[in-house]
Design a binder for these strands. Structure first.
Lengths: 340, 340
DNA sequence: AGTGGTTGTGGGAACGCTCCCACAGACCAC
DNA sequence: GTGGTCTGTGGGAGCGTTCCCACAACCACT
């Protein structure tokens, strides 16, 4: 085991040690077609001996690829790091990229640098594609990036009409699942605490609620619909209002777990038993769903899987930039706990 | 406004358009010394007109710098993204790097890839330095990376004897602040719920507790010391035990806010009034400190500032790799709320 | 008019890799 | 023997920068 030289070995040195040409050595390292076994072994041994590692910059210069992918987080960091959902996505992205031998370049798009620096960064030919995490309806960032000719995949589709590739949880299907479950449990007066109308997740989950009622032959009653803002407090208030508006309700589908947790509080306060009097189902399978009283039945979504899907889609996009790809909708499944 | 050509403009094209040599154009873009105003303006206009952006790979190839910094997260991602403390650090790192025109490459060092891929990644001459976020005492990663000749800065010093550059909160000073405050409030029987002995934060905060008692001329009473594991449950249990061991205590310094929150629960359960009977101080100023009953007096640390300090230190290290730098200890301050 | 400095400039060389073309040699069929 | 195809192979060219050296132009001074 000789000490590696001060300066990093080059491909040329590897080739010299192996007694082959630079081209052959390169062929061994990459695809490796049309190389004799003798040459291959010699090169591999030389690499081992010198501790050779290819210089990424030189490679990028000629291939015009960097094997790096940017993750642009357009949310406030508070939120991104605070919500376990985002953390899961990032974990999925991280491991999928590692498997594909790509690097993850993290860009925190604070309001400050957003307009100015961001496009500049991205054009620097520093990354092969961009993953974008954002929920805001009015975000023009995806279009902006695409204008630079970089493939983009958006996580958590911002608008229904978004032209970029995107990956999202199948909110409609998940909501149908939840409401269908309540119906199966014999509930006929199923209310919903819906999410904000200006977020896709809010709209789609409500859409699923409507569809499931229709499928079950139940009428859509406006008194059974209240909107919240995805916060726990809003769930609590919404539930109180529902109890006033429709005291005879026997099931509630909440557009997320936090609001469901609030609803449970309001129900207990009102003396309604869960699930005997009112069954409650949430959406998200957030950690809190395990610690509510009773534990919350909810629609499970896998953020990690979502991250992986984003990476898959982006890698496809880098290979066939022009091809049009359908948005990826990830299936959900129901986790039945004590509240239904 | 002419449409930019399909292929990105090169420095040579900029120079040609400006009617100067390649060298002069390069000089304008970088440091920019010894360039006539005439030439400078011509080049700047050409850059504007062509929408020129330097090719990072080509630059990295010759300068042997990438202007990118890796952030290696050796914790479980659950934890990193879950704790607001980490989120703050990352935010600080992100903005400090953006200001310094550096990129942030995020490496999630899951156990799986840790041994195998990591060193390989880092040697690829893909980053100029490494920021490491970890709390484990026995982590050999910093040494490993330094062996590759890459500057490393550790956030949240792992061991007192760590040879790497590091940035950490001044835990001793913070604990002294907290205990000193309790003493000022007239408390003479001040207990502590200490952190684990195998973490620097645990040891140092206890050390500060001891020092503050001594400074106040109060005796160190072993009955007033219980160790927890930084979890809320352990704080609750520790408090119960303290009440048994030393019913006459009138102040408690908890090594973090979560344990303090647990302690508050145990105190209420035991019928002790806070702060009248027992004053409680935490450490961290985590979000929970605002929502305990009563709101928690605690030692505030700024994770964002810590992230920035890590970046500062790393940039220094890349400029003077051999120079030895003292560890950076960040000051804390007390936030007085209702519990004291 | 000659000498010496300063300021600004152009362009060759090099960074370490991949791409690609030319070519040696083995093998086969006529 | 000649011509053709097919494997492997070596190495030139080029990717887009920065670094550096040579040199021109100009301004003093002797």
């Amino acid at each position: 085991m000789t000490r590696p030289p001060r300066t990093r070995p080059t491909l040329e040195e590897v080739a010299a040690l192996a007694g082959v040409g630079r081209g052959t050595a390169s062929r061994v390292i990459n695809g490796g077609e049309k190389v004799s076994d003798r040459a291959r072994q010699a090169v591999e041994q030389a690499i081992e001996e010198l501790g050779y590692v290819p210089n990424a910059a030189a490679r990028a210069l000629v291939t015009r690829r960097t094997d790096a992918v940017a993750l642009v987080i357009a949310e406030s960091e508070e939120r991104v790091f605070g919500e376990p959902f985002f953390a899961g996505i990032i974990r999925g992205i991280g491991s999928a990229l590692a498997e594909a031998d790509r690097q993850l370049v993290l860009l925190l798009a604070q309001a400050s640098q957003r307009r100015g620096g961001l496009d500049h960064w991205l054009t620097r030919q520093h990354v092969d594609g961009v993953l974008l995490l954002s929920l805001h309806d009015d975000d023009e960032l995806p279009d902006l990036i695409r204008a630079h000719g970089l493939p983009v995949v958006v996580g958590g589709r911002a608008r229904e009409d978004l032209r970029s590739d995107y990956v999202d949880v199948d909110n409609v299907q998940g909501a149908e699942l939840a409401v269908g479950h309540l119906v199966e449990r014999g509930r006929t007066r199923v209310a919903t605490i819906a999410g904000p109308a200006d977020m896709v997740a809010g709209r789609s989950r409500f859409q699923g609620y409507v569809a499931a009622l229709e499928a079950a032959g139940l009428p859509l009653d406006e008194r059974l619909v209240v909107r919240g803002d995805f916060g726990q407090g809003s769930g609590e208030r919404a539930m109180r209002e529902l109890l006033v508006r429709a005291p005879d309700l026997d099931g509630v589908f909440c557009a997320n777990d936090l609001m469901a947790a609030g609803a449970l509080l309001a129900l207990r306060e009102a003396g309604r038993r869960v699930p005997e009097d009112v069954a409650v189902v949430g959406f998200e399978d957030a950690p809190i769903a395990r610690s509510t009283l009773p534990p919350l039945t909810t629609v499970h979504q896998s953020p990690e899987q979502m991250g992986r899907a984003m990476v898959d889609l982006l890698l496809e996009a880098t290979q066939a930039p022009e091809a049009s790809r359908p948005g990826r909708m990830l299936p959900t499944h129901l986790v039945v706990r004590g509240s239904s």
